[in-house]
Nucleic acid binder design. Structure first.
Length: 264
DNA sequence: TACATATGATCAT
DNA sequence: TGATCCTATGTAA
């Protein structure tokens, strides 16, 4: 579900399904009626993802901005189109393809200045060609907050959520409570590279599975972080050193770590 | 079948 | 700090 990889994968999929086509657009739920009407019938010219945001650009320089938040989800129907449920904020499509958006935090009509503002408040996105590690690293050097908190700040790095932060810190051997500006240059660089690799795998597999397939344990029970190193694995043995994984609250969010592989 | 919990971010208090 | 958006999943019963 929605960390940055989800939005980039959606952009790719929706681009392939609907890019360049004249789009039908409506808001069965009623909370996006005006915006849906504005883009109805227009050609979908491009789709961009920035961190956890996605933008659908239509002819005439208008865009639909969507942020899924915690609950938001897109559902594709093809070729059969069910009647929209009561919570379908935006229904759009072309030909035999119909997409429903439900539960999003944001679904609104934007122009170029809004997008400019968004980009100005987001840090570099490791999934984008224009994402620069140097920006991330120099921003970290100004932070005296724990690195675990810094990684969730979208102004520092765009697209990282609670799962990727825990997994990347484990893979880099960095304790979440260490101060961001106290990491070595090599550690900061390694964090960026690791996050980019994990996010890319997320786009490819369309899910967050940070443990490579060959290391996955088929005998492990379902759920409970089966495809992960530390996230949602508190009490279970570390895959590397067998020390029990621990969990605590960092700010308002749960964080998970191996106390031995990630020394403070 | 019911319930607790969740990958996010904003806004009110 | 807490409420909110209001869906999906895993777990308990």
């Amino acid at each position: 579900m929605p960390e940055g990889h989800t939005l980039h994968r959606l952009a790719r999929d929706h681009r392939a399904l609907l890019g360049g086509l004249a789009i039908r657009s409506s808001s069965p739920q009623g909370r996006f009626v005006e915006g849906a009407r504005v883009v109805d019938g227009r050609t979908l010219e491009r789709i961009d993802a920035y961190g956890k945001h996605i933008l659908y650009w239509f002819e005439g320089g208008v865009a639909v901005h969507v942020h899924l938040g915690l609950y938001g989800i897109f559902t594709t129907h093809r070729p059969l189109v069910p009647p929209p449920g009561p919570n379908v904020r935006w229904r759009f499509g072309a030909g035999e393809v119909t997409v429903d958006l439900v539960g999003a935090t944001a679904c609104e009509l934007w122009g170029p200045p809004d997008v400019k503002r968004l980009r100005a408040r987001l840090g570099p996105d490791p999934l984008r060609r224009d994402g620069r590690a140097e920006r991330f690293i120099s921003a970290l050097d100004t932070r005296r907050t724990p690195i675990g908190a810094a990684l969730l700040d979208q102004a520092l790095i765009a697209g990282v959520g609670n799962v990727f932060r825990a997994e990347a810190l484990f893979l880099c051997g960095v304790h979440p409570d260490r101060q961001a500006n106290a990491l070595t240059d090599a550690e900061q660089r390694q964090l960026w590279d690791t996050l980019r690799a994990l996010l890319r795998r997320g786009v490819r597999e369309n899910r967050i599975a940070t443990v490579p397939p060959r290391e996955r344990d088929r005998h492990e029970p379902e759920g409970r972080g089966r495809h992960r190193y530390v996230y949602h694995r508190s009490g279970l043995p570390c895959r590397v050193c067998a020390t029990p994984i621990v969990e605590w609250m960092l700010g308002a969010r749960r964080i998970f770590a191996c106390p031995r592989c990630q020394p403070h």
